[in-house]
Design a protein around this nucleic acid. Structure first.
Lengths: 333, 333
DNA sequence: GTGAAAGCGCTAACAA
DNA sequence: TTGTTAGCGCTTTCAC
């Protein structure tokens, strides 16, 4: 049930069969047909392990995610997958599984086994040990999301994202602006939350607005977290912000629910702007700084694939972002 | 940079090194230590291809999804992943990529390459050709979601799901009940939508309620689709249903938005019940028939893993479902 | 407790 | 255009 069988049946040599199966040029037309036919009849299934051993190429790339059930990761994963599929490569998913996922073992056990030809890391900042370990494999690597020291990266410029949001709000007359962020996953060492946070602080400074500590809340980058943090933020009748910049649409969506429950009208009493371009946001009219994680995934995949092929890595600028004004932001009253 | 190097450096044989590295019993303690140390120093990275070739086992399982960005698939994928990770297996993701994904090629090209030891199919119904092709690999297979002819499956009993929902509504006095379903993905051949639809029809018949064709709407199993279908359903001032059973929480969430926009109060004017147990639903108070896709993923993974190990497949009953009554359903007025 | 040798299924020079 | 000959890096009898 290997290439050998086909060779015996057809009376050809293994090499010819191998070449025919791969559609290499130097094989006669009839030979190809014959081999294909016999392979079908025999129910031949190629062994990627054998091919991988012989060539040193696995035709697979690994994608590492901190957790799997976040909008951004799912979308980016989809983008990487689409590109890999087009290139005939498989996708091996390495889910660090969040704080409880035993990150270390996950790192060693699998990623280092030469099962893949390259690695796409989603929003991860690696520590020294991890970097060193991954370097061992000498595989092309790229990260999507926050810039990681020593690694190429594709992603938006988070300072720009925050600035866009703050400027939009300021133009509408807001100065009492709150920030909802968080640390995506405890201990997962994700950079983006910090970048967006710092971007917000800088942008506020640039437009001369004061940042109030009480208005920097933690929405944990999730819908639930957004509801919780929003509820707390809006609890005080007086001394409320007139606008909130949420570092992700999922949190913004949660805030919208909190506002609704608290009887706070949006955008009359409160303007809300998010980041991402989540589909739910589009249909509920959420103003946002949209990005395209799927495109980022595709770009990243193309980049590592090119590097695997030996092409020079194509240097890419920051990914596109776009302010999408919808109904949740309005002039301050 | 292989096992050979370590052998040379330590003066041991390849076999001993191999055994030491794998922690087999018949190796002296000091030898193990020595081998481990040298391996570390040399930056040894094992080759899963070589190991796979030699043993015939890849220590990897494939997960096939129709599309990747649906709540259920993401959760189930997470469950499969958790179990595989615990068992030290890798997860190869085969995303059919929806209707435009060139399903055939995806099937042939990758899944049939012996890259994985087993396959977990998410909600897929295979046609004859596909079944035949996959059979070639002789790998253990299981499907999560709708029962697939000829394959083991784990999932909820969709007739029960629909009955639970209908009975809940009927107990509240509803008889004018609409159904929002859809065909998840065109051409993706997913069974669940049909099962839930039929379950609804049967359950309605069982309680003596009439099913109105105009009240069977297509929410495409998505949030957007739910908004659209809901808007349409609620457009007619008169002749509205008093309750809607949505075959997924994502659609139910969309319906909630549509109702809000149409000025239809929930649950006073309209009761809404979904299926799934989506986190968003929990925080907005959506009544639902909850299931646990993550648990289903773990169960499926355990099952195929056991089969790979040669253990008899553990026969499992249908997965648990639970009616979770929250705020979106109430007595008919 | 350790070693020698064969082989997993394929690819890749090098010949013919 | 096709065949021959070596491996790829590991596991696994079978000896010692």
């Amino acid at each position: 049930m290997g290439i050998q069988e086909i060779a015996s049946v057809t009376g050809l040599s293994k090499s010819t069969v191998s070449r025919a199966l791969r559609g290499l040029p130097s094989v006669a037309g009839p030979t190809i047909d014959q081999v294909r036919r016999v392979a079908d009849e025999l129910g031949y299934v190629p062994s990627s392990a054998a091919a991988g051993l012989a060539t040193g190429r696995q035709r697979a790339v690994g994608v590492v995610v901190p957790v799997i059930d976040r909008w951004f990761y799912v979308k980016a994963l989809g983008g990487v997958d689409a590109e890999l599929r087009a290139a005939g490569h498989d996708l091996v998913l390495y889910n660090l599984g969040g704080p409880g996922g035993d990150r270390d073992r996950a790192f060693r056990r699998s990623m280092l086994r030469h099962r893949v030809d390259a690695l796409v890391l989603l929003s991860l900042v690696l520590d020294e040990t991890e970097r060193a370990e991954l370097e061992l494999t000498r595989h092309p690597m790229i990260v999507i999301g926050g810039p990681a020291p020593g690694l190429r990266n594709v992603g938006v410029d988070d300072a720009v994202v925050s600035r866009l949001a703050v400027q939009h709000l300021v133009r509408l007359g807001h100065r009492a602006i709150a920030y909802m962020g968080g640390q995506d996953e405890d201990g997962m060492n994700v950079a983006v939350p910090y970048l967006r946070h710092d971007g917000f602080v800088d942008a506020m400074a640039a437009v001369g607005c004061a940042v109030r500590t009480a208005w920097m809340v933690n929405g944990r980058f999730s819908f639930d977290g957004g509801v919780a943090a929003g509820t707390e933020l809006l609890a005080a009748e007086s001394d409320r912000p007139t606008a909130v910049f949420c570092a992700s649409d999922e949190m913004a969506l949660g805030l919208l629910v909190a506002a609704h429950r608290a009887g706070v009208r949006v955008p009359e009493d409160l303007s809300v702007i998010g980041v991402d371009g989540h589909e739910y946001g589009a249909t509920v009219g959420l103003t946002t700084v949209a990005q395209d994680p799927e495109a980022q995934g595709r770009t990243a995949a193309r980049a590592v694939l090119a590097e695997v092929e030996g092409h020079a890595p194509e240097p890419a600028g920051p990914a596109a972002v776009e302010l999408v004004v919808r109904g949740t932001t309005g002039p301050v009253r």
